[in-house]
Design a protein around this nucleic acid. Sequence first.
DNA 1: CTTCCTATTTAGAACGATCTAAGTCGCGAT
DNA 2: ATCGCGACTTAGATCGTTCTAAATAGGAAG
Lengths: 336, 336
Amino acid sequence: MRSKVTLEDVAQGAGVSRATVSLVVRKSPLVAEKTRLKVERVMADLDYVHDLGAARMRSKSSRTIGVVVPNLVNSFFTEFLSGVEQVMGEGDRVVLLANSHDDPLRQDEILHRFRGHGVDGVILCPAQGTDPGLLDRLHHWDLPVVQSLREIGENATDFAGGDYAEGVGLAVRHLVALGHRRVAFLSVTARTSARKERLLGFTRALAQTDAEDGGIVEAELSWEGAFQSAEKVLQLASRPTAVLCFNDVLAAGLMAGLRRAGRVPGQDIAVIGLDDLPLAQLTFPPLTSVAMWPDQIGASAAGLLARRLAHPDVPVQRSILVPALKIRESSGVQIN
Amino acid sequence: MRSKVTLEDVAQGAGVSRATVSLVVRKSPLVAEKTRLKVERVMADLDYVHDLGAARMRSKSSRTIGVVVPNLVNSFFTEFLSGVEQVMGEGDRVVLLANSHDDPLRQDEILHRFRGHGVDGVILCPAQGTDPGLLDRLHHWDLPVVQSLREIGENATDFAGGDYAEGVGLAVRHLVALGHRRVAFLSVTARTSARKERLLGFTRALAQTDAEDGGIVEAELSWEGAFQSAEKVLQLASRPTAVLCFNDVLAAGLMAGLRRAGRVPGQDIAVIGLDDLPLAQLTFPPLTSVAMWPDQIGASAAGLLARRLAHPDVPVQRSILVPALKIRESSGVQIN
DNA sequence: CTTCCTATTTAGAACGATCTAAGTCGCGAT
DNA sequence: ATCGCGACTTAGATCGTTCTAAATAGGAAG
């Protein structure tokens, strides 16, 4: 039961006042070089630890931010998280993590808990079906929020994401250039802004080419869901020659399902994913995908939040990363 | 700039004292039912938020724990994290997350920061090359620690992990039963307890069978590293008919590398992984692997920490999960 | 009508920092 | 000498809780 070393103890040891030590801790330019060195030595000797909890009480900033993701199994979110953690760590901030499991109720509890812990701000990837009123509530609490990957409301908060509409466009144009004319889309059942944006990109991209909409199939957002949807894809009336998938996890699951049904992806039917997760390079054939840089998105989100904390009144900003097509074998070769 | 609602405000509204409200917040049985209801109503009216930071200052418990992982891209750690978060969330605790990037220095900074934030305890997967003295230091700070997945020191702290020695044994016996006699092991360069345990399991399992050690190849812990190691595996003097891999990520990378070299995994050469990540079912051919239940390990680790926080003096406990073999096609068919 | 409980409530001092406003010190200028 | 000024330093209040020890109310028992 070691008694805690406090500012007072350090102050005594160094023969200065508590206030001066506090200034040293916070690296204020006000203290004389000599005093600073003395105090720092004593701090090291006594193994002083700055109590951020106590500090927050007076200063209002806790150097803590919360991150809410809907899911931790899709490595997209992991990479995203990794980017957030990286940037926040560099800014000497700490990340509180929680998983909403795509459940708005759970998300509410989490935000409430975060609030109790005095987080300075939150990076939120809103759960499916989140009530748009949530943003008002957060604003009312005046808790700075950056939305990421998904969005509720229109420009209600800062936002970091990737340009999925463009990503889908890249994929479609690639397929069309290879000669495909009937392209299907494997989507998800969950109604999120992410889904909307991709579908929008899909129809828009088709309109700019002479290819046609080969039909839309919906699956659960898991590789198993995609695996099972292979049958439905093969039964589409349009007999698509290519399938564009909501993300890489679904694409990989679909490829496995197609094989089960006796088709060879990349040969009998082209498959293309979105996100370019590491797993895209591990499937066979390797998966053509569109890189969305989740870690960069995470880093941007963290950057936006840091910016807002520093300047609460700057106008709302959106940070949208430009996607890049990664051509591999699953999209097959020119078909004629 | 909404001024914060404090205990005092609630107390005024309800016509009681601050102390009573505090008791209500903490669900003490001391307050009379009638008062409790009245206070609760006022709390709801004013949208009172319990300030856990201020609370911790007096009470010493922050209901916050820290998790340090060496990496966030391998989904093994993600699932682990997910298990931790789940259990902690249920216990109404919050998780501080940090990534050591397998760097002991960074790990030190993180622990220091966590300490500053007053975490009640830490779940640590020690970075490669961590000085065993770290545990003493943590103990000296009297910060409860549960180690997980990797371990420094011998039974120095509570530990949650999987029985990798047994997992490797399952895999080897499976291969031997299929007729393999020359089995190679694809290991990693990083010197961790995880590596040691698997190698130990490997030699021990071989000794119990009539198969021989087909050689050990080391790779970077990434799919690219494994991809590149395919050549080295094929050049082994023993000409192994099967390769057991450190984990699924390496196994998937190896399979891709073997294909590049013109071999068909599961047909020309058996490949088997460890961990049974979701990705094992997405490779082609699907990867035979040994399920280590990372989410369960995470949940156990969280459970152990919760237990230690509740009873600081209980003896050290180890929680080891029993692995299960998942047979798929990459281990091939009986070879004669 | 005391007295003694039990059940509840409370005043006031912590906790470990930050902030404000007021000091102190040395030194060159008047 | 005295003043003014810049460069530092500091006393003391304060943040929103919890804790301790003591106060109070309302009976039941004597």
